[in-house]
Write a protein that binds this DNA or RNA. Structure first.
Lengths: 216, 216
DNA sequence: GTCTATACTTCGATAGAC
DNA sequence: GTCTATCGAAGTATAGAC
């Protein structure tokens, strides 16, 4: 979509249009201070224009956040296409599937590349309807359905112990949501690298625990 | 603390002091619309005074939220004292402990009685330092430590399979945090009863899953 | 002690000139 | 497209009435 893909969000080069500068600057500021704390005047000052000029590019302040959300949703949708032949993967058993699934998860987190937007999603999920609905549907319900389906297939093929696949989906995937909140909200400190390391280590231990609990 | 304990937050009787009215009205409004969306003038109108009068009772708008948080923290601290003879409980095995632990958890959720304040905690946890620190320390780290200790004792007494007690604490308790966010944030709709029913059902299934995974 | 009138500053947003 | 000028509403502060 658009021309965003090849642009780093932080470089404010003169090649960027004013609208792009507003977009990128807003991501920086919203992720640091939250939507409400950032004023339109502050964005304008950072971009180098008067505050009224903002309204030539975006209907209002909310529309900037909307644009950021839309951009992020479309980025994530693209990275979600990597499914392909999942059945072949499933029949290789839960060990292999968890490993590949974990890598896909990381790829998805990094593909929808901007860690700053993940942070915005995290802190505005309770104040913004669009973000909340996106989170609930695309980041919670859809993955839960997928995992329920996966565990269901594994049970039918006797690859794991029989149990309730919906419960199993919750047991496995809710931990990822917990980690998201733990690091992006409760412990966030701009140190993105350590977040990823810690979260991946914890997710790996979690996979191991689940694996031991369900393997035949 | 203070005189809050015996007052229902919703009844705006004339017996209440102005400060109490401000306090209670703010809880209602903040839980419905969020801190930022509520104006001081709106609180004042609801209470029946001018906005400038608010400042005779609270330093500023933030101080009202601070008072609500402090009240809630002290309420929760009181309900946390119910520990007592935990060792006796532990040696009865994980089944009994999970059941009693679940009941204590519910009691704690209901004792710190105001579901409205739980909602405020949930939606302001990312915008307010005091709330975030409270959540991270008292609702996440402390319970994790307790559960780590509990699982450690159970392992020493060979009541459960040997594993990493810290990992086990995360496996068990992070699900409660997930449920909190799922219902108070992502799916909140003023229907508090159904939240409790659904969450308790899910937590019960989760306990069962963990139990099957760790029992000897 | 409690409340009000009033003013100050900053915010999001609009209109119109260049 | 960007500017200046301006608006109403927000959070806040205080002097003074009762």
């Amino acid at each position: 979509m658009k021309t965003k893909e090849n642009l780093s969000k932080s470089e404010n080069t003169s090649k960027k249009t004013t609208k792009e500068k507003i977009f990128d600057t807003s991501i920086d500021l919203f992720s640091q201070k939250g939507f409400n704390t950032v004023s339109v005047r502050e964005i304008a000052r950072e971009v180098g224009i008067r505050e009224s000029s903002i309204y030539n590019h975006y209907k209002n302040k909310e529309a900037i956040l909307d644009a950021i959300t839309d951009y992020f949703i479309s980025e994530l949708a693209q990275s979600g296409q990597i499914t392909g032949n999942m059945d072949e993967l499933i029949i290789q058993g839960p060990e292999v599937f968890f490993e590949v699934g974990g890598k896909l998860f990381i790829e998805r987190m990094n593909r929808a590349k901007n860690e700053k937007i993940w942070r915005i999603i995290a802190i505005e999920v309770f104040h913004n309807d669009k973000i909340r609905n996106f989170f609930r549907n695309e980041l919670l319900e859809e993955p839960l359905k997928s995992w329920e389906n996966i565990f269901n297939i594994m049970m039918e093929k006797n690859l794991i112990k029989p149990s309730n696949p919906r419960t199993l989906a919750y047991e496995y995937f809710s931990f990822a949501i917990f980690l998201f909140f733990e690091y992006y909200v409760l412990k966030y400190n701009d140190d993105y690298e350590s977040f990823m390391d810690l979260a991946l280590d914890k997710m790996s231990k979690h996979s191991e625990f689940i694996l031991n609990a369900i393997k035949v």
